[in-house]
Design a protein around this nucleic acid. Structure first.
Length: 798
RNA sequence: GGGCUCGUGGUCUAGCGGCUAUGACAUCACCCUUACAAGGUGGGGGUCGUCGGUUCGAAUCCGACCGGGCCCACCA
């Protein structure tokens, strides 16, 4: 019998703790069962976990728990992504330091310190959410918590580099790269976002050499005038036709450039005539290559101007722009400045700085050669939902350069290479150990020139180069040969749609290049958690809902139920609000209260065996079994929304309001006027318990703690060790829908006549399909005379 | 400009060719009925974005348009 009035978060945590202590969800790597592996998204733990984390992890946990109930061995390790720019940015902010001014050791130490402070906190949040990870301990065995900055993980990252290098898939090239001047590193295309920022058109005077005519040219990058290589106008533009082939003199720098017609110039943009500079943006670069012009770099890698910018040398881009404007104004060469509000600007996703394009040697992983294979892979993987596949296909189409995998930062996996001091020939580290070439010496002899002096590579890997091997890592690649040989494909990759072009794409690409296989069977792409107004949650907007706060207020179970009830995250964004979670809490309160009621009645195993359910009992058992069948089918396809909505509505409406009300008297059997036989009473008790049993089993993956507690109280067994319920068939002549309709009619009549619900009804006519529950119905509504005629419903109150 | 997606009572949402359009929140009225006021019962509220087409029949299929959102490309 349940005595507690409500189910509290403390009760949930006690159960979670019990599971953690007993290692209830530990992974057995020697299992003979089907292995169901989940490659969890390593969340960045530079900040506490947010609503997106907690919700998407909850949904993963639904799958993990459900699959265990199907008898599968679930590999569900917690991974923590602790490499890369986001960690560095947070550390710089938190400790108010600038890594470019610190020693490398010091910078790394800052990151470690930050991670030490945040890791435990994040793990605790996951624990409180009720996650059933394979382990809560860090370690090297399959299923342990892993961190991408551990020597073990970094050694595998480096090993994959060595393999790819030896396969000839990595090369170094001095190409134009996306340069983040703030972080002073190259970034990949996938890390660039476009923002509509306000730019300013500067209308600047150029002079025609031959005729001294003034030509007004609009530009947003006046500081780059020195690198102007050509001026173009649209071939159809009559205003400038006479300038074809003429020479123009750039203001200020007094350089001669050719003026030509070219379709890239749009007539209605700016003044309709434009200057082409090297490295202003990507189109400029393409144009220079196309025209065979010599590019001139005017921006240094720290974002300042160099000698090619003449007197602007040493200034930052912003300062230089200001200075040029001043000078041009002085010389009356600046006509006007007009703002253009929606100027699409490439911005570094990590730092928010405007991207510059400069030339820089970096290591590249070949990806252009594999676009067709990637398209094939995209079609082989099962996507949940189907439409998410398109996000990946679109990105594959958009890939135009190989993947620059090196970064010039600190807290990341080092490129495991050294170079011969004499002949610059590179040597690779040996696989298996984690190496740091920037502070470790290479001992050996150069195969090319015989020299024994080397210097270490200083660059590190793009963090996606690390995280793209997470499924390989959790399956024991390069660490546990026996296990990896048996389990080469990961069952499920759950992740956000915002990182399809990075995490999913890079993982499929890299793991394919390494193993020749498609690494995932299923991919579950979750949409985003947005605020009540439909805006993305972000720190800057201040509209973040903090899961820690919600845990404090509601505890884990309402949040988990909300994640199932709110919608299907594979299809739509979720709007998050207190109200909605409150609703989920109320549903759980209902479940709790019904359970309290059912727990008042006992029945022995022997009695259970002899039970013959009555027709109304069969009706509710039939409905329950249909829900169980639907749940199994839907859960298998990662749809938790449809069955859980059905199940909770069923509990509230049909089960609690109608069935329980109807059999209450049969279960109590203490009414002086209506006597039921022991068999009839036992049938009611059996049915109440049986419905609860199946519902609890169906809801366990969603709400493990509350269902565990109730199940234990009612049946003395542990729900998490049970098999997912198999639906039984029931046939009955009792019509549930008509029953509900009849009840409503009675209630309405009583209400219209201002009668209390327990007041007597003189005479009622009910449909024939309810005859089998005659005694219950009479007792339920206190009906004096009840007749059954055809389909008719008629209530005479007085 | 290209692609994807969505438009259903005040708000969110189910339905995706066939009974009176589902449910939740909010709202109103009544009610402590021995599991439950974090509750119960009942009520009010919808031209299913607009226009056209297919069909015996359209929220549902097709087309056009209008209006959101996301992604990609391009822009001096």
């Amino acid at each position: 019998m349940i005595k507690e009035k409500t189910f509290t978060k403390e009760m949930a945590y006690t159960i979670f703790e019990q599971w953690r202590k007993s290692d209830a969800f530990g992974f057995d790597e020697n299992t003979k069962k089907i292995v169901y592996s989940i490659d969890t998204p390593p969340p960045y733990i530079n900040t506490p976990i947010h609503m997106g984390h907690s919700t998407s992890y909850n949904i993963m946990d639904f799958s993990a728990r459900f699959r265990r109930m199907l008898g599968e061995e679930v590999l569900f390790p917690l991974g923590l992504d602790q490499n890369g720019l986001p960690i560095e940015i947070s550390a710089e902010k938190k400790y108010k330091v600038d890594f470019t001014k610190l020693t490398r050791e010091k910078a790394i130490e800052c990151c470690r310190q930050l991670l030490n402070e945040t890791t435990a906190e994040s793990i605790d949040s996951f624990f409180k959410c009720g996650m059933s990870f394979s382990s809560w301990k860090e370690g090297d065995i399959i299923g342990s918590i892993y961190q991408t900055d551990s020597p073990s993980y970094r050694a595998v990252t480096q090993a994959t580099f060595i393999d790819l290098y030896n396969k000839g898939l990595i090369y170094e090239a001095d190409k134009v790269v996306n340069w983040d001047p703030k972080l002073q590193t190259t970034v990949a295309d996938s890390e660039i976002i476009y923002e509509d920022r306000t730019g300013f058109f500067h209308d600047i005077v150029f002079k025609v050499k031959e005729t001294k005519e003034e030509v007004i040219i609009g530009t947003t990058r006046p500081e780059l005038i020195s690198t102007c290589g050509m001026v173009i106008f649209n071939p159809k533009d009559k205003r400038y036709k006479h300038l074809e082939g003429k020479k123009l003199i750039t203001p200020f720098f007094e350089k001669e450039v050719l003026c030509k017609s070219h379709p890239a110039a749009e007539m209605d943009k700016g003044t309709g005539i434009m200057m082409m500079c090297s490295y202003g943006d990507l189109t400029d670069i393409r144009f220079f290559i196309e025209q065979g012009l010599e590019a001139k770099v005017a921006i240094n890698k720290n974002g300042t101007m160099n000698e090619n910018a003449g007197m602007l040398k040493g200034m930052t881009i912003i300062e230089a722009r200001k200075k040029v404007v001043e000078e041009l104004e002085k010389q009356k060469l600046l006509k006007k400045i007009t703002p253009t509000p929606n100027h699409r600007t490439p911005v570094s996703e990590r730092s928010g700085a405007a991207i510059e394009f400069i030339q820089m040697p970096e290591l590249y992983l070949k990806q252009l050669d594999f676009k067709d294979e990637m398209r094939k892979i995209a079609k082989e993987v099962n996507f949940f939902s189907q439409k998410s596949r398109q996000i990946l296909l679109d990105w594959i189409d958009a890939v135009t350069i190989d993947w620059p995998i090196t970064r010039r930062r600190y807290y990341a996996t080092e490129v495991p290479m050294w170079y011969c001091k004499k002949c610059k020939n590179p040597v690779l580290a040996t696989k298996g150990n984690y190496v740091q070439p920037w502070k470790e010496k290479y001992i050996g002899v150069c195969k090319k020139c015989g020299s024994s002096e080397f210097y270490g590579e200083e660059r590190v890997f793009d963090t996606w180069f690390d995280s793209s091997i997470s499924p390989l890592y959790i399956l024991g690649y390069e660490r546990n040969k026996k296990f990896f040989e048996k389990h080469q494909q990961c069952t499920l990759r759950p992740q956000g749609k915002d990182i399809v072009r990075t995490w999913l794409y890079y993982t499929l690409l890299k793991d394919y290049l390494l193993t020749g296989k498609v690494i995932f069977k299923d991919v579950y792409i979750n949409y985003m958690i947005i605020d009540e107004k439909g805006h993305k949650m972000s720190k800057s907007k201040g509209n973040k809902v903090d899961p820690q706060e919600l845990l404090e207020k509601f505890g884990p179970e309402p949040m988990r139920l909300w994640a199932a009830l709110e919608g299907n995250l594979a299809e739509t964004d979720f709007k998050c609000s207190f109200e909605r979670i409150e609703n989920a809490r109320n549903i759980l309160a209902k479940l709790w209260n019904v359970s309290t009621f059912v727990s008042m009645f006992e029945i022995t195993k022997e009695q259970e065996k002899q039970v013959k359910p009555m027709e109304i009992d069969k009706w509710i058992l039939k409905e329950t079994n249909e829900i169980a069948a639907l749940a199994k089918k839907s859960y298998e396809n990662y749809d938790f929304n449809t069955p859980v909505v059905k199940a909770t509505n069923f509990i509230k409406d049909e089960f609690a309001s109608h069935y329980v009300e109807a059999v209450k008297r049969r279960a109590y059997n203490n009414d002086a006027n209506i006597k039921f036989s022991t068999e009839e009473r036992n049938a009611a008790i059996y049915t109440l318990r049986e419905v609860m049993r199946k519902l609890l089993e169906v809801l366990y993956p969603i709400n493990p703690a509350i269902t565990y507690f109730i199940y234990k109280e009612l049946f003395g067994e542990e729900v998490h060790t049970k098999k997912f319920p198999i639906a039984q068939k029931f046939e009955t002549n009792f019509d549930g829908a008509k029953f509900i309709e009849f009840n409503s009619a009675v209630w309405k009549v009583k209400k219209d006549n201002s009668l209390s619900l327990k007041d007597a009804v003189k005479k009622a006519t009910a449909p024939k399909a309810l005859k089998s529950a005659e005694i219950e119905i009479k007792a339920m509504h206190n009906i004096t005379e009840l007749v059954f005629i055809g389909e008719e419903i008629k209530i005479e109150a007085k």
